[in-house]
Protein backbone atom coordinates (compact mmCIF):
# COMPACT_ATOMS: atom_id res chain seq x y z
CA UNK A 1 0.00 0.00 0.00
CA UNK A 2 1.52 3.29 -1.17
CA UNK A 3 -1.26 5.83 -0.73
CA UNK A 4 -4.02 6.44 1.78
CA UNK A 5 -7.14 8.39 0.95
CA UNK A 6 -9.55 9.66 3.58
CA UNK A 7 -12.77 10.80 1.91
CA UNK A 8 -15.39 12.63 3.92
CA UNK A 9 -18.94 13.86 3.51
CA UNK A 10 -21.63 15.27 5.78
CA UNK A 11 -24.62 13.13 4.78
CA UNK A 12 -25.78 9.84 6.29
CA UNK A 13 -24.40 6.40 5.51
CA UNK A 14 -27.51 5.82 3.36
CA UNK A 15 -26.96 8.84 1.12
CA UNK A 16 -25.89 9.09 -2.51
CA UNK A 17 -22.54 10.40 -1.26
CA UNK A 18 -21.94 7.24 0.68
CA UNK A 19 -23.04 5.03 -2.21
CA UNK A 20 -20.61 6.73 -4.57
CA UNK A 21 -17.67 6.84 -2.18
CA UNK A 22 -17.96 3.23 -1.05
CA UNK A 23 -18.22 2.10 -4.68
CA UNK A 24 -15.16 4.26 -5.40
CA UNK A 25 -13.37 2.57 -2.50
CA UNK A 26 -14.10 -0.88 -3.91
CA UNK A 27 -13.12 0.05 -7.45
CA UNK A 28 -9.89 1.80 -6.54
CA UNK A 29 -8.68 -0.83 -4.12
CA UNK A 30 -9.45 -3.51 -6.67
CA UNK A 31 -7.98 -1.76 -9.73
CA UNK A 32 -4.79 -0.67 -7.94
CA UNK A 33 -4.31 -4.02 -6.24
CA UNK A 34 -4.44 -2.27 -2.91
CA UNK A 35 -1.76 0.30 -3.72
CA UNK A 36 -4.29 2.92 -2.69
CA UNK A 37 -6.26 2.37 0.50
CA UNK A 38 -9.48 4.34 0.81
CA UNK A 39 -11.37 5.23 3.98
CA UNK A 40 -14.81 6.84 3.86
CA UNK A 41 -15.98 9.03 6.76
CA UNK A 42 -19.67 9.83 6.69
CA UNK A 43 -21.95 12.01 8.71
CA UNK A 44 -19.71 15.02 9.18
CA UNK A 45 -17.05 13.19 11.18
CA UNK A 46 -14.50 15.37 9.41
CA UNK A 47 -16.47 18.53 10.11
CA UNK A 48 -19.04 20.59 8.24
CA UNK A 49 -18.54 21.41 4.57
CA UNK A 50 -16.81 24.71 5.21
CA UNK A 51 -14.18 22.96 7.29
CA UNK A 52 -13.98 19.98 4.94
CA UNK A 53 -13.23 22.31 2.04
CA UNK A 54 -10.57 24.10 4.10
CA UNK A 55 -9.10 20.75 5.07
CA UNK A 56 -9.04 19.57 1.47
CA UNK A 57 -7.45 22.81 0.26
CA UNK A 58 -4.72 22.57 2.87
CA UNK A 59 -4.08 18.85 2.55
CA UNK A 60 -5.45 18.00 6.01
CA UNK A 61 -8.01 15.79 4.26
CA UNK A 62 -7.58 13.87 0.97
CA UNK A 63 -11.00 14.67 -0.39
CA UNK A 64 -14.68 13.98 -0.31
CA UNK A 65 -18.09 15.06 -1.51
CA UNK A 66 -19.24 18.62 -1.01
CA UNK A 67 -22.18 20.67 -2.23
CA UNK A 68 -21.72 23.16 -5.05
CA UNK A 69 -23.34 25.78 -2.82
CA UNK A 70 -20.54 25.36 -0.27
CA UNK A 71 -17.89 25.67 -2.97
CA UNK A 72 -19.55 28.91 -4.05
CA UNK A 73 -18.03 30.60 -1.03
CA UNK A 74 -14.56 29.75 -2.32
CA UNK A 75 -15.00 29.68 -6.09
CA UNK A 76 -17.06 32.74 -7.05
CA UNK A 77 -17.79 31.38 -10.53
CA UNK A 78 -19.84 28.57 -8.95
CA UNK A 79 -22.47 31.08 -7.91
CA UNK A 80 -23.94 30.52 -11.33
CA UNK A 81 -25.14 27.17 -10.04
CA UNK A 82 -27.48 28.72 -7.52
CA UNK A 83 -29.28 30.87 -10.08
CA UNK A 84 -32.92 29.77 -10.06
CA UNK A 85 -33.97 27.94 -13.21
CA UNK A 86 -30.52 28.12 -14.76
CA UNK A 87 -31.19 24.53 -15.91
CA UNK A 88 -34.55 23.37 -17.22
CA UNK A 89 -34.40 20.36 -14.92
CA UNK A 90 -32.10 17.76 -13.48
CA UNK A 91 -31.72 15.92 -16.82
CA UNK A 92 -30.30 18.99 -18.48
CA UNK A 93 -28.07 19.70 -15.47
CA UNK A 94 -26.64 16.17 -15.54
CA UNK A 95 -26.00 16.47 -19.26
CA UNK A 96 -24.23 19.82 -19.19
CA UNK A 97 -22.16 19.11 -16.07
CA UNK A 98 -21.25 15.68 -17.39
CA UNK A 99 -19.88 17.25 -20.57
CA UNK A 100 -17.18 19.68 -21.58
CA UNK A 101 -18.64 22.62 -19.64
CA UNK A 102 -18.66 20.54 -16.48
CA UNK A 103 -15.01 19.59 -16.90
CA UNK A 104 -14.07 23.24 -17.48
CA UNK A 105 -15.84 24.12 -14.26
CA UNK A 106 -14.02 21.42 -12.33
CA UNK A 107 -10.73 22.74 -13.60
CA UNK A 108 -11.49 26.07 -11.93
CA UNK A 109 -10.92 24.32 -8.59
CA UNK A 110 -7.19 24.04 -9.32
CA UNK A 111 -6.62 27.65 -8.45
CA UNK A 112 -7.93 26.94 -4.94
CA UNK A 113 -5.84 23.87 -4.15
CA UNK A 114 -8.45 21.31 -5.20
CA UNK A 115 -8.94 18.86 -8.02
CA UNK A 116 -12.46 17.99 -9.17
CA UNK A 117 -12.99 14.33 -10.05
CA UNK A 118 -16.58 14.78 -11.17
CA UNK A 119 -20.08 16.07 -10.56
CA UNK A 120 -22.18 13.79 -8.41
CA UNK A 121 -25.90 13.41 -7.78
CA UNK A 122 -28.07 16.47 -8.32
CA UNK A 123 -30.67 17.34 -5.70
CA UNK A 124 -33.73 18.91 -7.29
CA UNK A 125 -35.22 21.24 -4.70
CA UNK A 126 -38.90 22.12 -4.59
CA UNK A 127 -41.34 23.71 -2.16
CA UNK A 128 -42.99 21.79 0.68
CA UNK A 129 -45.67 23.83 2.42
CA UNK A 130 -48.61 23.84 4.79
CA UNK A 131 -50.81 25.77 2.36
CA UNK A 132 -51.28 24.92 -1.32
CA UNK A 133 -48.88 26.53 -3.82
CA UNK A 134 -50.50 25.98 -7.18
CA UNK A 135 -49.08 29.04 -8.87
CA UNK A 136 -46.49 31.71 -8.29
CA UNK A 137 -49.27 33.93 -6.87
CA UNK A 138 -49.63 31.48 -3.99
CA UNK A 139 -46.00 32.14 -3.08
CA UNK A 140 -46.73 35.76 -2.11
CA UNK A 141 -45.80 36.41 1.54
CA UNK A 142 -45.06 32.74 2.18
CA UNK A 143 -42.64 32.44 5.11
CA UNK A 144 -40.18 29.94 3.75
CA UNK A 145 -36.92 28.58 5.08
CA UNK A 146 -34.32 28.47 2.30
CA UNK A 147 -30.65 27.58 2.15
CA UNK A 148 -28.98 30.67 3.64
CA UNK A 149 -27.10 31.77 0.54
CA UNK A 150 -27.84 34.72 -1.75
CA UNK A 151 -28.68 32.39 -4.65
CA UNK A 152 -31.59 31.00 -2.68
CA UNK A 153 -32.59 34.02 -0.62
CA UNK A 154 -32.71 36.37 -3.63
CA UNK A 155 -34.48 33.85 -5.81
CA UNK A 156 -37.24 33.30 -3.28
CA UNK A 157 -37.52 37.00 -2.56
CA UNK A 158 -38.01 37.61 -6.28
CA UNK A 159 -40.77 35.01 -6.32
CA UNK A 160 -42.57 37.06 -3.66
CA UNK A 161 -41.95 34.89 -0.60
CA UNK A 162 -40.42 35.91 2.68
CA UNK A 163 -37.28 33.82 3.13
CA UNK A 164 -36.82 33.22 6.87
CA UNK A 165 -33.41 32.32 8.25
CA UNK A 166 -33.57 29.20 10.39
CA UNK A 167 -31.20 26.42 11.36
CA UNK A 168 -32.07 23.18 9.60
CA UNK A 169 -32.25 21.39 12.96
CA UNK A 170 -34.96 23.76 14.21
CA UNK A 171 -37.00 23.59 11.04
CA UNK A 172 -39.24 20.66 11.94
CA UNK A 173 -40.55 22.36 15.08
CA UNK A 174 -40.89 25.67 13.28
CA UNK A 175 -43.07 24.13 10.58
CA UNK A 176 -45.10 22.28 13.16
CA UNK A 177 -45.78 25.46 15.10
CA UNK A 178 -46.33 27.61 12.04
CA UNK A 179 -43.29 29.81 12.71
CA UNK A 180 -42.53 29.20 9.03
CA UNK A 181 -45.00 28.08 6.36
CA UNK A 182 -42.75 26.28 3.95
CA UNK A 183 -39.32 24.93 3.09
CA UNK A 184 -37.48 24.13 -0.12
CA UNK A 185 -36.08 20.62 -0.19
CA UNK A 186 -35.42 17.60 -2.40
CA UNK A 187 -37.86 14.65 -2.46
CA UNK A 188 -35.50 12.20 -0.77
CA UNK A 189 -34.70 14.60 2.07
CA UNK A 190 -38.30 15.60 2.76
CA UNK A 191 -38.91 11.92 3.53
CA UNK A 192 -35.63 11.12 5.27
CA UNK A 193 -35.83 14.13 7.57
CA UNK A 194 -39.53 13.54 8.35
CA UNK A 195 -40.83 16.86 7.04
CA UNK A 196 -43.61 14.85 5.42
CA UNK A 197 -45.18 14.86 8.88
CA UNK A 198 -45.51 18.63 9.01
CA UNK A 199 -46.33 19.75 5.46
CA UNK A 200 -49.47 19.11 3.44
CA UNK A 201 -48.29 20.10 -0.02
CA UNK A 202 -45.26 19.46 -2.13
CA UNK A 203 -45.07 21.58 -5.27
CA UNK A 204 -42.48 20.61 -7.86
CA UNK A 205 -41.17 24.13 -8.43
CA UNK A 206 -37.65 22.82 -9.18
CA UNK A 207 -36.04 26.24 -8.85
CA UNK A 208 -32.62 24.92 -7.90
CA UNK A 209 -30.69 21.91 -9.08
CA UNK A 210 -28.30 21.53 -6.15
CA UNK A 211 -25.03 20.16 -7.43
CA UNK A 212 -22.50 18.03 -5.63
CA UNK A 213 -18.82 17.62 -6.40
CA UNK A 214 -16.27 14.88 -5.80
CA UNK A 215 -13.13 16.84 -4.91
CA UNK A 216 -9.61 15.88 -3.96
CA UNK A 217 -6.84 17.85 -2.38
CA UNK A 218 -4.63 19.11 -5.19
CA UNK A 219 -1.61 18.27 -3.04
CA UNK A 220 -2.66 14.62 -3.05
CA UNK A 221 -3.69 14.54 -6.70
CA UNK A 222 -0.50 16.05 -8.07
CA UNK A 223 1.56 13.64 -5.97
CA UNK A 224 -0.01 10.60 -7.67
CA UNK A 225 1.84 8.89 -10.52
CA UNK A 226 0.03 9.08 -13.89
CA UNK A 227 -1.12 5.46 -13.96
CA UNK A 228 -2.82 5.84 -10.58
CA UNK A 229 -4.31 9.17 -11.64
CA UNK A 230 -6.00 7.41 -14.54
CA UNK A 231 -7.36 4.67 -12.32
CA UNK A 232 -8.63 7.12 -9.70
CA UNK A 233 -10.29 9.36 -12.27
CA UNK A 234 -12.02 6.47 -14.03
CA UNK A 235 -13.07 4.83 -10.80
CA UNK A 236 -14.58 8.15 -9.68
CA UNK A 237 -16.67 8.49 -12.85
CA UNK A 238 -17.78 4.85 -12.70
CA UNK A 239 -18.73 5.20 -9.05
CA UNK A 240 -20.63 8.41 -9.78
CA UNK A 241 -22.57 6.75 -12.61
CA UNK A 242 -23.56 4.01 -10.21
CA UNK A 243 -24.46 6.45 -7.43
CA UNK A 244 -26.49 8.77 -9.65
CA UNK A 245 -28.65 5.84 -10.70
CA UNK A 246 -29.19 4.95 -7.04
CA UNK A 247 -30.01 8.57 -6.29
CA UNK A 248 -32.64 8.76 -9.05
CA UNK A 249 -34.19 5.65 -7.57
CA UNK A 250 -34.17 7.28 -4.12
CA UNK A 251 -35.87 10.33 -5.59
CA UNK A 252 -38.56 8.28 -7.28
CA UNK A 253 -39.15 6.37 -4.07
CA UNK A 254 -39.19 9.64 -2.13
CA UNK A 255 -41.90 11.15 -4.32
CA UNK A 256 -43.93 7.97 -4.08
CA UNK A 257 -43.60 8.04 -0.31
CA UNK A 258 -44.64 11.69 -0.22
CA UNK A 259 -47.80 10.83 -2.14
CA UNK A 260 -48.40 7.78 0.03
CA UNK A 261 -48.32 10.00 3.11
CA UNK A 262 -51.34 11.85 1.71
CA UNK A 263 -49.44 14.94 0.67
CA UNK A 264 -50.73 16.73 -2.39
CA UNK A 265 -48.01 16.75 -5.03
CA UNK A 266 -48.50 19.44 -7.66
CA UNK A 267 -46.62 19.93 -10.90
CA UNK A 268 -47.29 23.53 -11.87
CA UNK A 269 -46.35 25.26 -15.10
CA UNK A 270 -42.81 26.42 -14.34
CA UNK A 271 -42.64 29.28 -16.83
CA UNK A 272 -44.29 31.87 -14.53
CA UNK A 273 -42.04 30.80 -11.65
CA UNK A 274 -38.93 31.14 -13.80
CA UNK A 275 -40.08 34.50 -15.03
CA UNK A 276 -40.75 35.78 -11.51
CA UNK A 277 -37.38 34.53 -10.28
CA UNK A 278 -35.41 35.93 -13.18
CA UNK A 279 -34.75 39.45 -11.74
CA UNK A 280 -32.74 37.81 -8.94
CA UNK A 281 -30.04 36.76 -11.42
CA UNK A 282 -28.55 40.23 -11.60
CA UNK A 283 -28.45 40.53 -7.80
CA UNK A 284 -26.87 37.11 -7.34
CA UNK A 285 -24.19 37.69 -9.95
CA UNK A 286 -23.58 41.34 -9.01
CA UNK A 287 -20.07 40.93 -7.54
CA UNK A 288 -19.05 37.86 -9.51
CA UNK A 289 -17.88 38.62 -13.06
CA UNK A 290 -16.40 35.09 -13.17
CA UNK A 291 -19.88 33.66 -12.72
CA UNK A 292 -21.26 35.97 -15.42
CA UNK A 293 -18.74 34.55 -17.89
CA UNK A 294 -19.56 31.02 -16.89
CA UNK A 295 -23.27 31.71 -17.30
CA UNK A 296 -22.68 32.53 -20.94
CA UNK A 297 -20.87 29.21 -21.44
CA UNK A 298 -23.72 27.32 -19.78
CA UNK A 299 -26.34 29.10 -21.84
CA UNK A 300 -24.39 28.30 -24.98
CA UNK A 301 -24.29 24.66 -23.91
CA UNK A 302 -28.07 24.66 -23.37
CA UNK A 303 -28.74 25.44 -27.05
Amino acid sequence: QDYEMTLAHVLSDQSAYQVILTRFEELVEERTDGRIAVEVQCCGQAGNETRAIQAIRTGVLTGGFVGGSSLENVVPAYRVLSLPYVFSGSDEAYEILGGETGREMLDLLGEYGMYGLGWGAIFERSVGSRTPVASVEDMQGLKIRVLPTPGFVEAYKAMGTQPTPMAYGELFMALQNGVVDALEISPDAIVADKFVEVVDHYTLTKAHQSTTVFVLSDAFWSGLPDDLKTIVQEAALDAIAHGVEAHRELNRAGLEQVRAMGITVTEPDLAPFAEAARPSWDVILADAPEAQALLETIQAARQ
Binding site: G47, N48, T50, R51, Q54, A55, T58, G59, V60, A167
Partner: peptide
Amino acid sequence: NIPLIAIPQVIFESLDSFA
Protein backbone atom coordinates in the same frame (compact mmCIF):
# COMPACT_ATOMS: atom_id res chain seq x y z
CA ASN B 1 1.65 14.19 9.68
CA ILE B 2 -1.50 16.24 9.96
CA PRO B 3 -0.78 19.86 9.00
CA LEU B 4 -1.24 22.13 12.03
CA ILE B 5 -3.50 24.44 10.06
CA ALA B 6 -6.12 21.86 11.01
CA ILE B 7 -6.16 23.56 14.43
CA PRO B 8 -7.76 26.86 13.38
CA GLN B 9 -10.04 24.98 10.98
CA VAL B 10 -11.42 22.91 13.81
CA ILE B 11 -11.70 25.65 16.41
CA PHE B 12 -13.43 28.08 14.08
CA GLU B 13 -15.89 25.44 13.02
CA SER B 14 -16.82 24.76 16.64
CA LEU B 15 -17.30 28.43 17.51
CA ASP B 16 -19.22 29.26 14.35
CA SER B 17 -22.50 28.06 15.80
CA PHE B 18 -25.85 29.74 16.29
CA ALA B 19 -26.82 27.42 19.14
